[in-house]
Computed example of a mutant assay.
Amino acid sequence: MQLIRMFSVLFLAIGGLACGQPHVHYEHKVVLRDSVNKIAPGPSDPQIQFAPLPSAVHSVAVDPTLGYFVGNLGGGVYWVTDGSYSNMFMVSTHGVIVVDAPPTIGHKMLYAIGNTTRLPVTHLVYSHLHADHIGAASLFNASHPIIIAHAETHDRLAMLSPLDPLRPLPNVTFQNNYTVSVGNQTLELSYHGPNHTPGNLFMYASAQRVAVLVDVVFPGWAPFTELGVADFVPSLIAAHDVLLTFDFDVLVAGHVGQLGTKHDVLQQRKYLEDLRDSCAVAIKGIMMDEIEPTVAANPGNAWATAKPVFRVASQICADNTTSRWLGVLGAVDVFAFENAYRMVNALLIEYNVPGPFSVV
């Protein structure tokens, strides 16, 4: 009881975000700790071999000489990928609209556009603030494009702009909705709250039935580490339902070398819900003898008291979830522990599923 009280006090000290939120109940199958694949939680052996990629992974072939692939989505819309990152541009009668400028693609983006049209880039849209998606934006400075982003993206970049000229500040911002119209092309931008990060935009080319949402869905693959470094997990999961309200055939997702469909959105939502439910069961099922050795070895060290709870719950959740998704999504085992760890944190402080940190 004293140990549980210690956890409760610690949770109240570091988990104030959960105060006042309704308790969320999850039903899930019983965890079988000895019948699942074990996922290494720590630094990996450089020679470790992960599970083979399933058939859901069907990345386009990137010409090694060019280092990029350009796909024609019809109606003047093109997507560009280097196999790891992807973005989009639209060719209109009066100029080019570009969405994002990943530095891994870098100058290749200029080549891709230049080999498609002689028209200048007149508009550049930032999906969100992260440098891995807009860190090459300065390459378009020569054409002086209008840079468009959510107001939250502008405000955060403004704190960094003296240090990062590679991401010029947007000169057009908005709060809820904005329509980019250039010549005969239209791109609708909308904001539905934080998910991957505050300011992350939903983008939609209705005439071509193409949607763009970056760092939320990873078509054919499990999410990147820590659920794609998610800012707010409940809204990350809800973003899937928002995306499905758009009438699209093709999704440009910002990562991996393949396009997405509504099936990919539904599949990943199912994976995230399974991960959430599995982690909730793991949190509630932690046994004191699993964490007592660490507590006993570190008297008075509150951080050392909390760490085994996060570690044990994340490991159990990772093991069980991975056993169900291997062969369904690509690389589900690679960041299994990190994704479970982010979900455990979300359950504790965002969903208010406290487990051993319950009110006394």
Rank of each mutant, 00 (worst) to 15 (best):
R5P: 00
M6E: 13
I14H: 01
G15C: 11
G20N: 07
G20V: 07
Q21A: 14
E27L: 06
E27Y: 02
V30W: 00
V31Y: 08
L32E: 03
L32A: 08
D34H: 13
P43S: 06
S44H: 13
S44V: 15
P46V: 04
Q47A: 10
I48Y: 05
Q49Y: 03
A51W: 05
P54C: 06
V57W: 03
S59H: 15
A61L: 14
V62S: 04
D63G: 12
D63N: 15
T65S: 02
L66R: 09
G67M: 00
Y68V: 11
G71Q: 08
G71D: 08
G76V: 14
V77Q: 05
V80H: 06
T81A: 07
S84E: 03
S84P: 00
Y85I: 12
S86C: 11
S86F: 00
F89P: 04
T93C: 05
G95Y: 01
V98A: 07
V98Q: 05
V99P: 00
D100T: 11
I113C: 02
R118L: 10
R118I: 09
L119Y: 07
V121N: 06
S127V: 02
D132T: 12
A136Y: 01
A137L: 04
L139S: 06
F140D: 11
P145M: 03
I146F: 00
I146W: 00
I146Q: 09
A151W: 02
H154M: 12
A158N: 14
L160I: 14
S161R: 03
L163S: 08
D164I: 14
P170R: 09
F174I: 04
F174W: 13
Q175F: 01
N176A: 14
N177D: 13
Y178K: 12
Q185D: 06
T186D: 00
G193E: 14
N195Q: 09
Y204P: 01
Y204F: 15
Y204A: 08
A207M: 10
A207D: 06
V217H: 03
W221D: 03
P223D: 10
E226F: 05
G228W: 01
D231Q: 13
D231P: 02
V233A: 04
P234R: 08
L243A: 13
L244C: 10
T245E: 15
L251T: 02
V252N: 01
A253N: 11
G257H: 15
Q258K: 11
G260A: 13
H263A: 12
H263P: 00
H263S: 08
L266V: 03
K270I: 07
K270A: 15
E273N: 12
D274I: 12
D277K: 11
S278R: 10
S278F: 02
C279D: 04
C279E: 05
V281N: 08
K284F: 05
M288L: 11
T294N: 03
A296V: 03
N298P: 04
N298W: 04
P299R: 05
G300A: 09
N301R: 09
A306G: 04
K307T: 15
V309K: 04
F310Y: 15
F310Q: 14
I316H: 14
D319L: 01
N320T: 13
W325Y: 11
G327A: 14
G330R: 10
D333Y: 12
F335H: 09
A336W: 00
Y341T: 15
R342V: 12
A346C: 12
L347R: 09
L347V: 15
L348Q: 12
Y351F: 15
V353C: 15
P354H: 10
G355F: 00
G355K: 00
G355M: 06
S358Y: 05
